[in-house]
Design a protein around this nucleic acid. Structure first.
Lengths: 353, 353
DNA sequence: ATTAGCACTCACGCCGAATGAGTGCTAACA
DNA sequence: TGTTAGCACTCATTCGGCGTGAGTGCTAAT
């Protein structure tokens, strides 16, 4: 059985209608609302065929049809038209990015927030993560009589603070000296050779043994933390807005799933090489039973060499794929252009610059 | 009409029972479950009196009684017994605090998380905020060819990073020199006298005009950000676990309310001097209609001179006030002892120390 | 002051009928 | 052979009625 033009149109009608209304749609409604030039009986026959192909299903005997996961898949792969963003939306997305360059965490947060507001779905954004991580610069800053902050700048430009608590804090000159020493040590050895670095440092600063030890530990932690993906979510509550989750139990399950970090990580890492395409996982295609009624649209953004992060949109299976893909493409393009322009040196100023 | 001992006992029975079960409770049940030595008819008469006093209400004619806001108020003010924490819980609360000293933001986050897990309510923790804020130390750290991080340590020991984007980054010696200069300048002048600081700095480092200007701006931002209360929430989803919010619409309203930052701020600032007592706002006592079915238990913790933050617990009116107050008292005591011991110098080590 | 007894109220759950949206099938038609 | 009108059939949903039971309020007796 092949799909003629009319059947495609009927499938499309069912999908777009269902995305809008969340109600099963029947033959008569299609005949009236969409001008296909045939009677409801004909549409009925076609729908019967579409059901036989597994593209639509009937929730119960006397109801209309709704798209199946396979139906959505066909739609997304073959039929969906890319959607032009309105200038307002495009502007908004651009502003979000441009106003927040410089502070990665803030940028991620704001991006997530904007996307959540725009799409009404749940957004997850991961911080850029590179496969190999090197420390670029370390600086010790005094806080009070018993604590020093180690500011650690990594090669992918993230800046992390680690508070070191020590029994006595050396003066600023000494702190600077130690900072400088560790920086040269890091340049001369690789981080894998921590023992060498440690012995050199402890030899040079025997009187600051405690501080140096803790500093080295902090550096190791920073490197390890790289494996520990940081991410930001926004719009989790949007879930409650959809009739398919008006059952509190269902909503709770989804919330629980979203809270579990590991789950999200696998969600984003699995089965997908990092590439330039938007990736769509529909309903049961993902193997987490808590999210079988959800779809996930995700895309990666490059952030300098070897370093990339992910933006994911989680919504009901009945989500507006076309709009979501457009928005994702736009924000990723914005992120990447701005990032590139910064490293090229013709940057605009960030909010805090 | 006065409240004799038995009526108090009946009220208490109704409140504790309702807190546990969320079901209206009738005279017969009280007679059976609580050993008052009188018949259900007697209890019925007493309940009628309690209702007349506005301490309990009937959801509908043929239902049992539930406590009114005024009933809870009487209970909380006059009848509630402080509850001993189990050693496990006490330990847990202590560990949370002690393992996270040093990194305020992390400490707040973990505290919120622990309290949410423990109480099953929603927790809001605000970062300590002092009425006057002074900068204690500033250090510039290079990130890449076009950006420098200004690490700003304030007197209340918070450490903030501000990325400064500049057209060219001076070398490390120069950055250190500028850092040192700004530190002495800040010591010599007050922050109110920014113009003097600016003119001195710009005179000393004419070739780094851009960097210095942005640095000063960042410092001002840091001071101003102090007005901007930072807070952490946890356990928002716990709301969904309570039958009173099993209606999705209600849950959504509460979520919306909790999302609005301003709302939370007023919730915490309003009508309450900062003092050592746990503060309880019951149901309709707060004037936000979205939260009229919720109660808020909050307490402030001192964080060094003039600086304090707030921990708030938000739950259904039918919340376990006694347990909540105990937990709050415990965590606040822990926070304050640990903070004090740090400034006294006999600290334990933090996780990252 | 307390209690037993009784009439009364009313939310809740269950049943059955009516409704109506939607289907599948068949026979007729172009 | 594809399309259509017509019709019987299905079944979720709605609504009214009815029985049940938890709970009250009142009264009269203790």
């Amino acid at each position: 059985m092949d799909l003629n033009d009319r059947k495609f149109k009927i499938l499309e009608a069912i999908i777009t209608d269902y995305i809008k209304t969340a109600e099963p749609i029947g033959s008569r409604t299609i005949a009236k609302k969409y001008d296909l030039g045939v009677s409801s009986a004909t549409i009925r026959n076609d729908m019967s065929d579409l059901e036989e192909l597994g593209l639509i299903v009937q929730p119960h005997t006397s109801a209309g049809r709704i798209p199946s996961d396979r139906g959505y898949r066909l739609y997304v792969d073959k039929m969906m038209q890319s959607q032009e963003l309105s200038p307002e939306v495009a502007d908004l997305l651009q502003n979000v990015v441009e106003n927040n360059i410089g502070q990665i965490d803030y940028l991620m947060q704001q991006t997530a927030k904007a996307l959540a507001a725009l799409t009404n779905y749940t957004i997850v954004v991961t911080e850029p993560k590179s496969s190999r991580l090197n420390i670029k610069h370390v600086q010790l800053v005094p806080v009070d009589e018993r604590s020093v902050v180690a500011v650690i700048v990594t090669e992918n430009k993230s800046v992390k603070n680690h508070v070191l608590r020590v029994s006595n804090v050396p003066d600023i000159e000494q702190l600077n000296s130690i900072s400088q020493a560790i920086n040269t040590a890091i340049q001369n050895y690789t981080l894998q050779d921590m023992e060498s670095i440690a012995s050199v440092m402890l030899q040079t600063y025997p009187e600051n043994r405690e501080l140096v030890t803790k500093l080295l530990k902090a550096i190791l932690t920073a490197v390890k933390q790289n494996d520990n993906v940081h991410y930001y979510t926004s719009g989790v509550n949007n879930i409650l807005g959809f009739p398919e989750f008006s059952d509190v139990e269902k909503a709770k399950n989804i919330f629980r799933a979203l809270e579990e970090k590991d789950m999200l990580i696998t969600l984003f890492d699995k089965d997908s090489e990092h590439n330039d395409e938007v990736h769509i996982v529909i309903g049961g295609e993902n193997n987490m039973k808590e999210l079988q009624e959800c779809s996930i649209v995700r895309a990666d953004y490059n952030y300098g060499n070897d370093s990339y992060g992910t933006i994911g949109v989680i919504g009901p299976t009945r989500m507006n794929y076309s709009q979501t893909v457009s928005v994702l493409n736009a924000i990723i393009k914005n992120l990447e252009t701005v990032i590139k322009s910064i490293s090229d040196g013709k940057n605009k100023d960030g909010k805090n610059g």
